[in-house]
Design a binder for these strands. Structure first.
Length: 961
DNA sequence: TAATGGTAGGGGAGGAAAGTAAGCGCGTAT
DNA sequence: TAGTGATACGCGCTTACATTCCTCCCCTAC
């Protein structure tokens, strides 16, 4: 890309750049600046006559660039970098590299950063896609050539559309493998490993083989079945080369060639990375993320936010409405503050202390320069708030409308146009959600709203609400119909807008730091082996698949391709037990015993896995004796580890052992950044272990196995039942204890026990003892642990309770509420707060009268219209498209109504629909207090007061007025 | 097209279904 | 003695209304 030297533009008149008056005095921080702005209408605004034309800004450009690359000698220097993104492209073979030498072939590409902060693009050559098919025992090695010829001929005929493939089937090799699905008896059996020229040919080969279109004489009518033909090519590469997401790679001296613009005729650089190299796929070293290789490179994270002009009441449309500001913040991962803070503004803007203001008269030039800025700064991660669904598509479409030819090249590959494609991702966990795919090769997009939607359940996902929730920082929203007014004012009003825009670019960085988003996802990528970008764009299954395939490969096992039956098969299995609660208010300590990692430990204890699953008919086939296999409570058969230790149990053991180690290291570690990394790691390991069970039960998935999942839950049901029995059988007066213990409730892996004792300390002692006692009744590594004591404890219903939570006898840790209105997002905040306060008064202060008074007060406030309207907003999520709803839903109707009023701002699929927004105020719709009292407040209030006060007294609260 | 972790369960909303009381017409006894 | 009208009452039917049940939907627990 051409070096841009100045921000003055030729087309639309000279652009101006403003500076603060006193360059030499230390500048206030951004926060102070914002605080100042909020407190008064700032003194910092320069008066018109102090405005100066922009000086040439060479020194600023230098600050944007990465540190200069030292000279490198391919013969003597290693290159080591943290790989951040791995993808592939189709290109022509490089002479001297392994693999196919003609045609268009896939070439892998790893983008990364060295520990000095240099960006690297590494082309990896010679790795080709493949699949397996089992063949009969009598298959002779010399038949491979025939097989290859026949298959190749058939594929060449069929796949004419695939251009520049001189040979579709590159290789056929006879190997020994074993299917991972079902116990297969003794040894490995013959498979063909079929290597093809391009990733898309894998599916074609599978189709032809399974359809019986490939006839090899010696095999007759052999029915082919494909294995591992559905593995993503990037994942395939990473598995086979032991690369995991975000790990460190070393290219040893002598193995790599640098691409440089020189006349020698070698391959030319195609990327914007500082260092671009070629290497053979089997020549680089991939470091497992352990020890020193847990470190993190100084990754550049760019956060940006845009503001658009808009016409009254109409959501901005890129074809018509201008981009008026773009704020940018760039930080090195691990640093405290951004080292670049700037804002591109349309028309003049008074200076903002601490930030670089760049003003333009011509919007097209602004966009052109912003794209140049991106390429100059060369960020590894691009973040922001809702950039995937708004900012990025808007900029791209706006640039298209203004015909800014150089704009849509935001990735690291020269000449690769950045485009927007909409996709729908649907999962049971997330519901249906639309998102855009925007290619920025080599730069990972990390839209914070997507992260938050996945990782946190919140009432509202507006940046404002999120900032308040996590940072206790409110950003004063500029209402969207104010934007144009501010823009059409003068340099000072535009400055106001700029300050908000800058803050919106800054908040995502603060949130990333506070929530450790990048670190945690990096660790998740390392643990599960997938690229970091998959964590936001793909589902849960790919992570398990990646781990499973890696483990399977070590043992010569291959994964079959499971064909999803079309439509809903309705297949399901029985889940966990929820013990019928003995509802009521307990003014005695209740001890809680939990199985730690219940499902993983069941799978480990009983060797439940694909590889150990035994078909009843196979008992005779393999001549198994009854002591060689087990029958699970759901009636499924699994062989014991002595015959074949399962893959899943092994994966789980490693995950849990690694977690234990990470937690141990975490305790010893003193460096705050490394502490964060370790904490992220242990969390990733825990989540990974827990998702293995879900994977086996995912009927629309890569490899469901209900025998495993239903056995797991059946064992779980048995165990919780047995725990209840054992505790009650032992802890009673007949056995010399002072009281009869009673299990009052339990869910899946926990039991709540009333031992009858009156102090927390006594309950803890008995809890510990009972946990150890019951653990002894189960197979290793199943362990029941004493976790906490609730005192007092209000048990309202299944999955609904509240209590004071004690982990030590002296003082409670917190008030714990489960399932009740305080933790639900579909009530108005008024109710949540009211219940919360009442519970605090009841449980902590032990002041029922105070609680009643408070409730009465709130009800009377409500009836007298003294409640802030924001407290009455109810929100619900739009989980499916309008047509998919079969029943009438209030929030769906509301969403449709909002769409008619203002199509741009209306809630979309996956958004939460807030009822009664500002609309109510503006249109002075009367608030139906009676509705709120009757439909929102009364029942929940009765539910918490009744067990404590009795029915009559509880009801009287509502009649107070 | 490709891709999509699980089940249990509370509770609200709304509609269908079954229940019930009121209203009415009709027949009949007085 | 037979016929007539007024009245009360039982019965079945219709209608309006309250209740229950069921399903959908959201969201949570684990």
């Amino acid at each position: 890309m051409d070096k841009r030297k100045t921000y003055s533009n030729g087309a639309g008149g000279a652009s101006k750049r403003f500076r603060g008056e006193d360059e030499d005095t230390p500048m206030s921080t951004f926060e102070e600046e914002l605080a100042l702005l909020e407190s008064e209408e700032s003194e910092l605004i320069a008066s018109e006559d102090s405005l100066q034309p922009a000086p040439e800004s060479q020194e600023v450009d230098a600050r944007w660039s990465r540190p200069a690359l030292p000279p490198l000698d391919p013969a003597a220097d290693d290159i080591t970098f943290q790989q951040m993104e791995t993808d592939y492209y189709l290109g022509y073979p490089l002479p001297g590299m392994p693999g196919a030498q003609t045609g268009l072939i896939p070439i892998m590409r790893m983008f990364g950063v060295t520990s000095e902060g240099h960006s690297v693009c590494c082309h990896v050559h010679g790795f080709a896609p493949y699949l397996f098919v089992p063949v009969p025992e009598f298959f002779k090695p010399e038949w491979c050539a025939t097989f290859q010829r026949v298959l190749n001929t058939a594929m060449m005929r069929e796949t004419k559309s695939v251009t520049e493939v001189p040979q579709a089937v590159l290789d056929v090799e006879l190997v020994k493998r074993q299917s991972m699905y079902g116990y297969q008896g003794a040894g490995p059996v013959p498979f063909l490993r079929i290597t093809v020229a391009q990733p898309r040919l894998v599916a074609a080969a599978k189709r032809m083989l399974e359809r019986g279109e490939v006839v090899v004489e010696q095999l007759g009518g052999w029915q082919y079945r494909a294995y591992e033909s559905n593995v993503d090519f990037e994942i395939r590469f990473m598995i086979d080369t032991n690369v995991v997401g975000c790990n460190w790679i070393t290219l040893p001296a002598g193995s790599w060639r640098r691409r440089a613009v020189d006349p020698s005729g070698g391959p030319q650089p195609v990327s914007l990375s500082q260092l671009e190299v070629d290497v053979a796929w089997n020549k680089f070293i991939s470091h497992p993320p352990e020890g020193e290789w847990q470190k993190v490179a100084p990754i550049r994270i760019l956060s940006f936010d845009i503001e658009c002009s808009n016409r009254k009441g109409i959501f901005p449309e890129p074809e018509k409405d201008a981009v008026i500001q773009i704020a940018n913040m760039v930080i090195n991962q691990g640093d405290k503050d951004p080292f670049i803070r700037n804002i591109f503004t349309l028309k003049s803007c008074a200076p903002v202390v601490g930030s670089d203001v760049r003003s333009y008269e011509d919007e097209g030039v602004l966009l052109r320069d912003w794209a140049d800025f991106i390429r100059q700064v060369d960020p590894d991660i691009i973040t922001g708030y809702n950039i995937n669904n708004f900012d990025l598509p808007y900029l791209i479409n706006r640039a298209k409308a203004l015909k800014v030819a150089t704009f849509p090249f935001l990735g690291r590959i020269r000449g690769r146009r950045t485009e927007v494609k909409t996709t729908v991702l649907q999962s049971k966990q997330m519901g249906k959600r639309e998102s855009n795919t925007i290619n920025t090769e080599g730069r990972t997009q990390f839209d914070l709203i997507m992260f938050l939607r996945r990782e946190y359940k919140l009432r509202s996902y507006s940046l404002n609400a999120v900032s308040f929730h996590f940072l206790q920082e409110q950003k004063e929203d500029v209402h969207h119909n104010m934007i144009s007014t501010l823009q059409e004012g003068d340099a000072h009003t535009r400055r106001r807008l700029a300050v908000y825009c800058l803050k919106d670019a800054y908040l995502p960085l603060k949130l990333i730091d506070k929530l450790m988003c990048v670190i945690n996802y990096m660790e998740m990528a390392r643990v599960t082996g997938v690229p970091m970008s998959f964590l936001l764009t793909r589902g849960q299954q790919i992570k398990v698949v990646s781990q499973l395939l890696r483990k399977a490969r070590q043992q010569g096992l291959v994964m079959p391709v499971y064909e999803n039956k079309g439509g809903d098969t309705g297949e399901s299995f029985e889940g966990a037990t929820v013990i019928e609660p003995r509802k009521g208010y307990y003014d005695v300590p209740i001890a809680t015993l939990d199985f730690s990692s219940l499902y993983p430990s069941i799978m480990m204890a009983h060797n439940l896995c694909y590889t150990s699953l035994l078909e009843p008919k196979d008992i005779d086939k393999y001549g198994l004796k009854p002591d060689q296999y087990i029958k699970t409570p759901s009636g499924n058969l699994f062989v014991k580890p002595s015959l074949r230790p399962g893959l899943l149990p092994e994966i789980l053991r490693e995950l849990l052992a690694a977690r234990k180690k990470a937690k141990g290291d975490l305790k010893k570690e003193t460096d705050p950044l490394r502490k964060q990394v370790l904490d992220g790691r242990q969390l990733a390991l825990k989540i990974s272990a827990n998702s293995v069970y879900g994977f086996t039960g995912a009927t629309v998935g890569k490899l469901p196995c209900l025998e495993i999942s239903q056995s797991v839950t059946a064992f779980g049901r048995m165990m919780i039942e047995k725990t209840k029995e054992e505790v009650e059988k032992r802890y009673n007066i007949a056995n010399g204890y002072k009281h009869d213990a009673k299990v009052i409730y339990g869910d899946t892996d926990s039991v709540m026990v009333r031992f009858g004792v009156s102090t927390v300390k006594d309950a803890m002692e008995l809890g510990n003892e009972a946990a150890a006692f019951v653990s002894g009744k189960f197979v290793n590594p199943i362990k029941l642990e004493f976790e906490k004591v609730y005192f007092p404890y209000l048990l309202i219903n299944k999955k609904r309770y509240a209590g004071l939570y004690f982990t030590r006898p002296e003082i409670h840790d917190k008030m714990d509420c489960k399932g009740i209105e305080t933790v639900r997002r579909d009530n108005c905040p008024l109710l949540g707060n009211l219940i919360n306060v009442c519970l605090q008064k009841l449980l902590i202060e032990r002041d029922p009268d105070g609680a009643v008074d408070h409730a009465k007060q709130v009800i009377s406030d409500l009836l007298c219209n003294r409640i802030d309207i924001s407290q009455l907003v109810i929100s619900k999520e739009l989980t499916k498209t309008d047509a998919d709803y079969s029943a009438k839903q209030a929030h769906v109707q509301l969403a449709n109504k909002m769409k008619k009023r203002d199509p741009g701002n209306a809630p979309k699929l996956g958004d939460r629909v807030p009822y009664d927004p500002i609309y109510v105020l503006e249109n002075s719709v009367p608030i139906d207090c009676q509705y709120y009292l009757e439909n929102q407040l009364s029942k929940p209030l009765l539910r918490i007061f009744e067990p404590i006060l009795g029915e009559n007294k509880a009801e009287s609260i509502l009649l107070s007025e």
